Simulated assay, not measured.
Amino acid sequence: MLKINNRFWFKLHGWLSLPVWALFCFICITGTISVISHELTWLTNPNARAANPADLPAKPAAELVQIVKQAYPTADVTNVVSFEPYLVNGVLFTDHDKPVAIAYVNQYSGEIQEVNQGITFINFMRSLHGWLLFPWHGSYSIGYYLVSLTAFVTLGAVITGMIVYKGFWRAFTQPKLRMSQGKKTFLTDLHKLSGVWSIWFLLVMGLTGLWYLIQAILWHVDYDIEPHPPLAQISQLPADIAQPPQPPLDLNGAMAIAKQRYPEFSPSYLMMPEHPRDTFKLYGGGDHAFYDEMSYFLAINPWNKEVVGDLNPDKMDILQTLAHIADPLHYGTLGGLWTKAIWFVFGLIISGMSVTGFLIWGSRTVKAARQTPAPVGQTVQEG
């Protein structure tokens, strides 16, 4: 039986890191920033803060929509987005002079604090980290594949690292960081120590990244993880299409239906009907800690008030479950600010590991090249 020595595993570990170290480091850094993108938005943009000195209750989404329509009478409101409680709600709309705009509405005071017609910092960082801002061609993006393929690099580096670092578990109880024996020794100890303490985090990143790759393939082959709700029947629409009346169900009524069905429903993304046959699509979170804020979904026909689409964690199949637990595990949002802080710290650690790993590999490669004997018959000319 072929026996693979330790040198092979060390080389494999190095080559898993070296060729893609710059891309991997970039993805780690942008992901680390994405984890705290909401908090950075709060720090850097006062208009995004949902100040509530009078301790007022949050206004319903329908009232925020009316506030925007009063300020912009010709606007067509398409979505309402809820972020963190300390950030304003976003009301997305289009107008004759605003192709795409998002109004930052303080959900407590009802004040429109800003109208943004560009990409938000949160969306920019998620897009930069998720698919490197590569364009989407239909249902796929090359950048999304590049990012998700680094899951193999992450998992491969963890496995080969544990094989190369004999007795790695001792670093939990006997951490070693020699700072007085030169830069090379210090970098090596730092890399090993960071790697051992980050094993759990690297496994989480690698496994969720592997899911993102599977998800990308499913999107590419047009496989719907979640079925699309049916459209309203033409027979349900009014006969006079020249002057169609408003459907009997508005956003307030749709939210009341959602709350009646799921009392724990906390709205995060609300979509208005785009055309007469479309439905209200309400996404939100509930009382399941490991699921994202889109794990509860209702599609409601505005003409007959019928729920035509319904999904929650108790009804999900395995693919739907993976789709809704991947983001909280990948971005550390499952426990609020505390888990975000932990994910941010370990994101910095693995970002630094990619740099120290490159420096260690590079120094050893240069040293090995210098020690390689010259071929027979080759003379060295001295200047």
Rank of each mutant, 00 (worst) to 15 (best):
Gln66Leu: 06
Gln243Cys: 00
Leu56Met: 10
Met294Ala: 11
Trp338Arg: 05
Ala374Gln: 10
Tyr108Ala: 01
Ala341Leu: 14
Glu63Asn: 00
Gly90Phe: 10
Asp189Arg: 13
Val115Gln: 08
Pro57Ala: 04
Leu270Asn: 05
Asp222Tyr: 05
Tyr72Ile: 06
Leu155Asp: 03
Asn79Arg: 13
Met205Ala: 10
Ile159Leu: 15
Phe358Ser: 01
Ala75Gln: 09
Leu334Gln: 06
Glu306Val: 12
Asp76Gly: 03
Phe290Lys: 10
Leu146Tyr: 07
Val153Asn: 09
Leu311Arg: 09
Ile36His: 00
Ile102Lys: 10
Thr94Ile: 08
Gly335Pro: 09
Leu177Gln: 07
Thr78Met: 03
Pro245Ala: 04
Gly357Phe: 09
Phe10Thr: 13
Gly336Thr: 03
Tyr104Asp: 06
Ile300Thr: 05
Val376Arg: 13
Trp197Ser: 13
Glu226Leu: 09
Thr208Glu: 02
Thr279His: 12
Thr44Cys: 03
Tyr145Thr: 05
Glu114Leu: 05
Ile350Tyr: 07
Ile300Ser: 07
Ala254Glu: 13
Pro46Asp: 08
Gly336Cys: 04
Trp219Glu: 03
Tyr144His: 14
Met294Cys: 02
Gln215Cys: 01
Ile349Gly: 05
Ile29Gly: 07
His38Phe: 12
Ile360Leu: 15
Ser354Gln: 08
Lys315Pro: 04
Ser363Ile: 03
Leu177Ala: 10
Leu231Lys: 12
Ala54Asn: 09
Ile142Asp: 11
Asn304Met: 04
Pro273Cys: 01
Pro247Thr: 00
Pro247His: 06
Ala323Val: 01
Leu18Met: 14
Leu251Trp: 12
Ala101Cys: 06
Trp303Arg: 04
Pro276Leu: 09
Lys305Gly: 01
Phe121Lys: 07
Arg261Asp: 04
Leu16Asp: 02
